[in-house]
Design a protein around this nucleic acid. Sequence first.
DNA 1: GCTTATAATGAAAAAGATTTTCAATAGTAA
DNA 2: TTACTATTGAAAATCTTTTTCATTATAAGC
Lengths: 152, 152
Amino acid sequence: MIEERVQEWLGRLQACGCRLTGPRYILVEILARADRALNPQELHAIASQRYPSLGLVSVYRTLERLESLHLIQRVHQPDKCQAYIAAFDGHQHLLLCSQCGRVRFFDGDELGGLVRRVEQESGYRVEDHWLQLFGLCDQCQALQGNEVVLYE
Amino acid sequence: MIEERVQEWLGRLQACGCRLTGPRYILVEILARADRALNPQELHAIASQRYPSLGLVSVYRTLERLESLHLIQRVHQPDKCQAYIAAFDGHQHLLLCSQCGRVRFFDGDELGGLVRRVEQESGYRVEDHWLQLFGLCDQCQALQGNEVVLYE
DNA sequence: GCTTATAATGAAAAAGATTTTCAATAGTAA
DNA sequence: TTACTATTGAAAATCTTTTTCATTATAAGC
């Protein structure tokens, strides 16, 4: 499932004339597997472990490329707004653990009524919406906030 | 109404030991009146017209102070995440014009059912949520995207 | 009104994040 | 194997934000 995603992303990169290089393999694999949003610095730190010569610039460039292909999406959080996670299929929303950062997707189909109400009250024509929920994931609830398990 | 807000903010600043200075009067007045979110640069540019010696540093410091008093709140948008607008009363959400940036508030009471569903499906304990709608305000619909009227 | 303590200011420097430039490297097609 | 050129990392440049610090100015006490 995740492995397929890695292959699909690499295929999509190649399909638009991009070359498959060492840095890209590593970065695609990390991003396709990540269960939380990573910013350029975090991504660089993780990827450097397996590819020590990796430059931060290549991380920025790869993120830009993957985002323009809609393979990853930017995630806004109170403390960081330049983090990326795999883009979801269809119209989904994010549920983020405010402790460990783990991300899950959910659909928000029941939003239509609210959108129509707001359109009528405001006179705006609504074109898009952002919905994100923040909370504690099951693991962090169990830990009762004693420790945080980050990427490893 | 807006004038009251200016007075209230100044009072709140004074109440916590802050001094009322030229830069603060200007910045409070602009922020309390603004109908769209402003980032430090925009705010500095606008305020400088009335207070030419104003330093950008004071803008940062005042924003920080006002945010810590919950008088303003940060607004996340696709292109800018460091913009601020007056904080609303109670639990409200934002409706932003994707053309001119004008902001309106609305309540999203009908969100409770969705939150409970997601909690059950995910096992997360939801603590907070962000909901923002993007669209065209009535004025920008009328202009049909011919021109953008920014702050003036 | 005058004095005084100190919060607030702006300039400059420092720190961080992101983008640009450029010569060297390395995919990929022929 | 060769040739083309996309990609790379280092360094420089650009922006944004924070820190430092001497100076200024608010507000309280007299």
